[in-house]
């Protein structure tokens, strides 16, 4: 097992190097004057020149790259122009908000999509099978920001069930003492039930939006792989040996069917991390996505670059976790390592 993890870690290294090079190139080697970006639109010519020297942009590209790597290794992502604050600190502060939202969104969609896919596969042609087909074709066509707005209109404006879409907590509450940074968990740790409910209320709509967004690929994959597994030889022989249908469907078929679903999660995360930005904007969620959007509008490039890099590193890490999870379930992977 340790072997497997080590091997996967090594495989992730080229991806990481690629990511760092690309984020570096995004600022330096592209047309236009990077110094002007960093100086902002209102800067004078001298200010731009000053920035150029300060950032080392007058040096050869390779020197700049070494310097960039050096900064990164200290966790230095530069500073925001508008606030003057170090980008890394701001991202670190906002990351839990984004992570809590994304993970809950994934949880919601798994909780709906996996049973839906399984029921559709075990009862082909049934109502639920048709429902699954509709969800998977319609789901991929829904712009995530549009879903979010519809949910707000229905559940906040019309029904009044949801709180105003303005961030992680109603203004009457103050955040729980930070342990994990996830309000749901921290409020429980603090033993504050009311706070838990309040933060859950804020989370439901955005998480549901993300959930609906990633429902389609997961449900489609679950259905397809469950269908394939159910008609496979080993399920037939498991039924022939008289195992209960629960054992056959859950212990034998389901665990095998989950393998391709876990693989698809990589792609789902790619979409989810992107969609997260849009959802954060719709719900005024104080995560790293809205940090990046605010910076984009202000033409403040350092936060954007830090954001892209952080997202990419998280994505590489998530893929690594997915690979390891796969190896835990599938013994064939362990041997390969």
């Amino acid at each position: 097992m340790g072997n497997l993890i080590l091997k996967r870690l090594l495989l992730a290294v080229p991806s990481l190097i690629g990511v760092v090079i690309v984020t570096f190139l995004l600022t330096r080697a592209l047309p236009g004057d990077p110094a002007a970006y960093f100086a902002g639109p209102a800067a004078t010519a001298e200010a731009v020149e000053e920035i150029r020297v300060k950032l080392g942009l007058d040096q050869p590209l390779i020197v700049q790259f070494v310097r960039y790597i050096g900064d990164l290794s200290h966790g230095d992502l530069g500073s925001s122009l508008t606030t003057g604050q170090p980008v890394a600190a701001e991202i670190k502060r906002r990351l839990p908000a984004s992570a809590e939202l994304t993970l809950l969104g994934l949880l919601v969609s798994m909780a709906i999509a996996v049973p839906l896919g399984i029921l559709a596969a075990t009862q082909p042609g049934s109502l639920i099978d048709h429902a699954c087909r509709v969800v998977t074709t319609a789901g991929v066509s829904l712009p995530v920001f549009f879903t979010g707005l519809i949910l707000i209109y229905v559940f906040y404006y019309k029904l009044g069930w949801a709180p105003a879409p303005l961030g992680r907590l109603d203004i009457f509450f103050s955040p729980p003492p930070q342990v994990t940074g996830f309000y749901l968990i921290d409020s429980l740790i603090a033993g504050n039930g009311a706070l838990f409910v309040a933060s859950l209320k804020q989370l439901i709509l955005p998480a549901l939006t993300l959930g609906i967004f990633s429902l389609a690929p997961i449900a489609r994959m679950t259905r397809a792989s469950m269908l394939a597994v159910l008609s496979s030889d080993f399920v037939r022989s498991a039924r022939a040996s008289g195992l209960s249908s629960f054992t056959v469907v859950v212990t034998y078929a389901f665990r095998n069917a989950m393998l391709p679903v876990i693989t698809t999660l990589g792609m789902v995360f790619s979409f989810l991390l992107g969609a997260n930005v849009l959802v954060e904007k719709v719900f005024a969620w104080p995560g790293i996505g809205s940090f990046a959007v605010e910076a984009l509008i202000a033409s403040d490039f350092a936060p954007v670059q830090g954001f892209v890099l952080t997202m990419a590193i998280m994505y590489v890490a998530l893929n690594l976790i997915i690979d390891i999870l796969y190896g835990l379930i599938d013994p064939r992977m362990r041997l390969e390592a």
């Binding site: 496979s232 030889d233 080993f234 037939r236 022989s237 498991a238 039924r239 022939a240 040996s241 008289g242 195992l243 209960s244 249908s245 212990t251 034998y252 665990r255 095998n256 393998l259 379930i329 599938d330 013994p331 064939r332």
Partner: peptide, 24 residues
């Protein structure tokens, strides 16, 4: 499902595919 496996059992061609690949 009471009878299968208890009274009447079956083995298949291609035994490797007939066994669950991820269960010992």
């Amino acid at each position: 499902s009471e009878v299968r496996g208890r009274e009447i059992a079956m083995i298949f061609q291609n035994p490797r595919a007939a066994l669950n690949p991820i269960r010992s």
